[in-house]
């Protein structure tokens, strides 16, 4: 596979962006993605943003997983 991590876009300058991952900051290339804005989360691999992370999808999956957890906790 490929080691890729979600990071938040802090600043955009031309084809590059400064991204933040848990407090560390790294300059990455935006050459492979369109329409990225400050505040977006991107998936970073070998110094390139590969794609935008869909935050709504992420929240939705987590909500569903936590629902499952609550249901399991409620079961006798």
């Amino acid at each position: 596979m490929c080691l890729a991590v979600p990071a938040e876009v802090i600043e955009i300058s031309g084809e590059d962006a400064l991204v933040d991952l848990g407090g560390i900051r790294k300059r990455v290339s935006l050459m492979l993605v369109d329409d990225v804005a400050v505040g977006d989360y991107v998936i970073v691999h070998v110094g390139f943003a590969l794609t935008r992370l869909d935050r709504d999808e992420a929240q939705e999956s987590l909500a569903l997983l936590r629902e499952g957890l609550a249901a399991a906790g409620a079961a006798p």
Binding site: M1, C2, A4, V46, F48
Partner: peptide, 8 residues
């Protein structure tokens, strides 16, 4: 690398 790394 696979297709993930090739675009870079």
């Amino acid at each position: 690398g696979f297709e993930t790394t090739a675009p870079a």
